[in-house]
Design a protein around this nucleic acid. Sequence first.
DNA 1: AGTATATATAGTAATCATTCCTATTATTAT
DNA 2: ATAATAATAGGAATGATTACTATATATACT
Lengths: 131, 131
Amino acid sequence: MITIYTIFSAMRFSHQRETIRKIVNSTNSHPTADWVFSRAKRSIPKISLGTVYRNLKRLEKTGDLRTIYDGSIARYDWNTKPHDHLKCKECGDLMDVHLLDEGIRSDVKKKYKFAVDDVKMTIIGTCQKHK
Amino acid sequence: MITIYTIFSAMRFSHQRETIRKIVNSTNSHPTADWVFSRAKRSIPKISLGTVYRNLKRLEKTGDLRTIYDGSIARYDWNTKPHDHLKCKECGDLMDVHLLDEGIRSDVKKKYKFAVDDVKMTIIGTCQKHK
DNA sequence: AGTATATATAGTAATCATTCCTATTATTAT
DNA sequence: ATAATAATAGGAATGATTACTATATATACT
């Protein structure tokens, strides 16, 4: 007797992935994989770092989060809407801001015949805490 | 007899550093350290990768080049004047452009009381080669 | 509810970019 | 030419990320 199952891989529920999603959703601090890992261990002590990376990547693919790079290090952001970042060189904080880049988009399209998907802007400087 | 030399370390000439500087200056391709290394080996076969990294870092400090990050990978750019990048997701090319971000600078300063040092903007999309 | 099948995991090894270490070499002030 | 020390080559160490594999778990079908 032959049983045919679905050929294409479906995404299964996973307790680990849900935990990771919740952790990323719960903070505005743009956490690193390692921070998510240490947080996840509180509720799933045996979770492995590989699982965290695999699921962060998966969640990005499904549009549940976006990856941003702070220098060479990857950080994860639940906010998938277009926005920019202010990075304070004093405290290292990365703050979300929304600057109008619609002008930039159309400008680039006209001037350089470049079809824009995404504008990644990080502004480096000093935040108001350091005066 | 006691001889007193300069206390503070002065930068010495180095054939390797000059070669590295020339290589970075010679291209608009925003090369990686590894690319610079393989180029440098043509004229200095025994040059080591550590020397390349050390000098790229040094040249950044002296303002001879700037480091940009393409995702998590460091690339080096001889153009130290403020400018932005268009990254084509089809061919991976990184193109220099100058978009007016003066408005953004003053906007950020007013709205968020954030002292701006540098605006890092990369626009992801598709360049005119792919139509 | 029970079983079959495949996806997801934990744990660990491997990879890749980058930095660090150290004995030797090269630059430069004298 | 010499002394002092900055810079190098070569290799080891690090840190983030990915790959591998045997086991555990979710789920489609009975």
